[in-house]
């Protein structure tokens, strides 16, 4: 079943061929590209915004209160002005300035927490998989236990006792709850790879444990690690936003979650001040959609059977 005939293809067959061609370079995956594009957009907003926009507008009372975005009118019949293109909030802060500062903050918390959680997970997962015995038992039981405890509630207790926290501290705290799933994932993979032919071959070749872990196993874990990392970024941002919406989290730095918190408290929904809560919500939604697309793309990269479907 090797030779291919040269008969011209029908349109349906051409479409099919295009679909199958995606198998050739899995990384050129439209979902992955879109997802990365959305996240880069948010980062660019943060960078370009800092250069081009006057960030002093995030301070209370720097503008008229409750101005709508350009092209809209608020209940007091005021029109939006170009000085504050996305409108202002209930205490006269410019929404554009808020999101330029706030959006990268949310992403930063997510990435940092996930990075720390991931590193812990890789370390514990490899340790459990390689050392085995009692060490494995302890790591397994603790991660089983910790995975069922919702991070939000422990963090609520923490932050309501300690008051204000910095962004970095919040990321550190969240990291304490996102190491469990990478640990479990890597442990399971390590245990199955330990039995695999190529790891046995490496042992026969006199490879050290370090070589087996980092040169033989790690490269094959990359798609899983990426997937787990992105899933953890999502969880971390959700947790951070959750805390902010409860009025916890950093008190002095503008974050998207805190803006939403203030909007709800000020009754922005009833007063029809949709831009106040709506724009941060939209931005967070874009962030989550971007993360989901990356995750779906990575799934397809590591599991060719999924590619057939889309």
């Amino acid at each position: 079943m090797t030779e291919a005939t040269n008969t011209p293809l029908t349109r349906a067959e051409k479409r099919q061929a295009r679909r199958i061609r995606r198998f050739d370079n899995p990384w050129r995956n439209p979902k992955l590209i879109w997802g990365i594009g959305l996240l880069l957009g948010i980062i660019l907003l943060g960078i370009i915004g800092r250069i081009l926009w006057n960030l002093d507008l995030v301070f209370t009372g720097s503008a008229t209160l409750k101005l709508p975005p350009v092209g809209f009118e608020n209940l007091r019949r005021q029109e939006g002005v170009w000085d504050y293109p996305l409108g202002t909030d209930g205490s006269g802060r410019d929404i554009l300035a808020l999101i330029i500062i706030g959006a990268p903050n949310s992403l930063f918390v997510g990435l940092l927490a996930s990075l720390i959680g991931m590193s812990t997970g890789i370390f514990l997962g490899f340790t459990a998989g390689f050392v085995g015995g009692r060490v494995d038992d302890v790591i397994r039981v603790i991660s089983d236990v910790m995975i069922t405890i919702p991070p939000l509630l422990i963090l609520v207790v923490f932050q309501s006792s300690f008051g204000d926290v910095s962004l970095t501290l919040m990321a550190l705290l969240i990291a304490g709850f996102v190491w469990q799933s990478p640990t479990r994932l890597i442990r399971a993979q390590v245990l199955s790879m330990k039995q695999s032919g190529y790891v046995q071959m490496a042992r026969l070749s006199g490879a050290s444990t370090g070589h087996i872990m980092f040169r033989e196993m790690m490269p094959n874990l990359v798609p899983y690690l990426f997937g787990s990392f992105i899933a953890n970024v999502t969880t971390s941002i959700v947790t951070a936003v959750g805390l902010e919406v409860l009025g916890l989290g950093p008190q002095r730095i503008p974050t998207l979650g805190r803006t939403i918190y203030e909007a709800i408290n000020a009754g922005a929904l009833i007063q029809n001040l949709w831009w106040w809560w709506g724009i941060p919500t939209l931005l967070l939604a874009v962030m989550f959609i971007g993360l989901l697309l990356i995750n779906l793309g990575l799934d397809e990269v590591s599991n060719p059977r999924l590619r057939k479907l889309s």
């Binding site: 032919g197 190529y198 046995q200 071959m201 490496a202 026969l204 070749s205 006199g206 490269p219 094959n220």
Partner: peptide
């Protein structure tokens, strides 16, 4: 050793010469 499953004996991440080169150097 030579094992039963010739599919599993090569690390999918590397070109096949890795399996020959690495022990030779090691």
């Amino acid at each position: 050793a030579v094992f039963q499953d010739p599919y599993a004996c090569f690390n999918p991440f590397y070109r096949v010469n890795h399996a020959l080169k690495f022990p030779f150097k090691q």
